[in-house]
Write a protein that binds this DNA or RNA. Sequence first.
DNA 1: GCTTAAATGTCGCGT
DNA 2: ACGCGACGTTTAAGC
Lengths: 253, 253
Amino acid sequence: MPVSTLTDPTLKDAHNLINTGFEHGEMITLVGKCEIDYDGRASSHLPPGERLVILKPDGTLLVHGNEQRKPVNWQPPGSTHSAHLSGDCLIIESVRTSPHEELDIMFQMVAQASRFGLDGVSEFNLEGSEEDLRQRILADPDILETGFSAMATERETSAGPIDIYGQDADGTAIAVELKRRRVGPDAVGQLNRYVEALERNRPGKSVRGILVAPSVTERAKQLLASENLEFVSLTPEQGDTSQPTDFSKDAEK
Amino acid sequence: MPVSTLTDPTLKDAHNLINTGFEHGEMITLVGKCEIDYDGRASSHLPPGERLVILKPDGTLLVHGNEQRKPVNWQPPGSTHSAHLSGDCLIIESVRTSPHEELDIMFQMVAQASRFGLDGVSEFNLEGSEEDLRQRILADPDILETGFSAMATERETSAGPIDIYGQDADGTAIAVELKRRRVGPDAVGQLNRYVEALERNRPGKSVRGILVAPSVTERAKQLLASENLEFVSLTPEQGDTSQPTDFSKDAEK
DNA sequence: GCTTAAATGTCGCGT
DNA sequence: ACGCGACGTTTAAGC
């Protein structure tokens, strides 16, 4: 796993390293003082400052400062990168199409330039997702409500797809919206759209709407009540008995 | 702007560099082969593979592969990092509290280790945000609708804050929801929640709801119609006459 | 600290 | 390519 690193290189040497990295489809990192312009979905300008710049072979570009998880500037995968020297600056240009977005990084000084290859993507499985919550309910529908039976997942309505569509012991239709974590008003609005869409399609017949999540906020609880929707507390993970002290914040139906 | 870099260091030397970086409040980057476990809001495991790891002095941790804008694993700012040698591994531990989240990175091999300081945050102003759109309307309310007058921004309702609350030439109340880009059903649901909250609070009096965005999707248009809500096409930027070919996709009131 | 909604959100999946 | 919704969303602002 070879890494080529230049410390305090001339801009010309940094430029050469970058181009070699491009040719080999490698990762490139640059540390130095630079000024940055972005124009695309929005636009921004960063005055000269010290940053870490990362170029990935898939066209991703990241600019990181010394704080925050989010890059201060970036380009998404698929962008096209190029580097050139102009006067006393090393300029990195990144262009994306559809939508058109452009990012220009002007380096006054490069303190470090590196290039290296990384192996491809490896197996990665995340546990605790909304999909896990769905599987939990489909495997044992009674945990949602005694007598519940699932009839479809991702059932289409004019307002969008319902996570689980089913019926209760009486045969009344139920729309179930799943959330992996505590929810606010947005999730209630989502469920409400689906229920209203179903009711518009089957006039006269009522449809129950059930929001399934670990818990709901107070405002969401009020909205559920005013829309005549229901809530069932479930987590994606089976034996999740976390935060017993937070029990007071769990909203019940 | 001093950068200390080690190429193909022993794990012991890499360990020393990391601890020195911690002491000095510096950025640290590591390139090497590692295995990663995460447990917190969800949980995941990454088998051994080559990655770029970034540690920021504010407690941020990023793990990047050779693709994607998003890190494959991370810890948010405020996390606590530590490094130690264990057998033939260099282990980085990161812990976050509230919620408790833990990330363990086990390096089998380090190809590059660096530490360097970056100067603080600098001026950064983004243009084209929803706030810009709001300013545009407040400066000239007629661009929304002739006779419109704004009475409040972020006006609170039982369903949440309305972007702009005002009235039309007839004195009828209007809730305005702003979006900086083309919107889907979620934005319609949001506006609808606000309008219904206002109507619940002032029974008998009707409230108009206007969604302001560059354009809406077809489904959103249908939802607007079924909820009796309106749409006005505006962009955050003044002279934004982009995508004339997309005009057919702009929904009109 | 919790809630709420914006974001250059990003990302994957479906049409 | 666009629509749609999940995401360990992250982040900021208000309370």
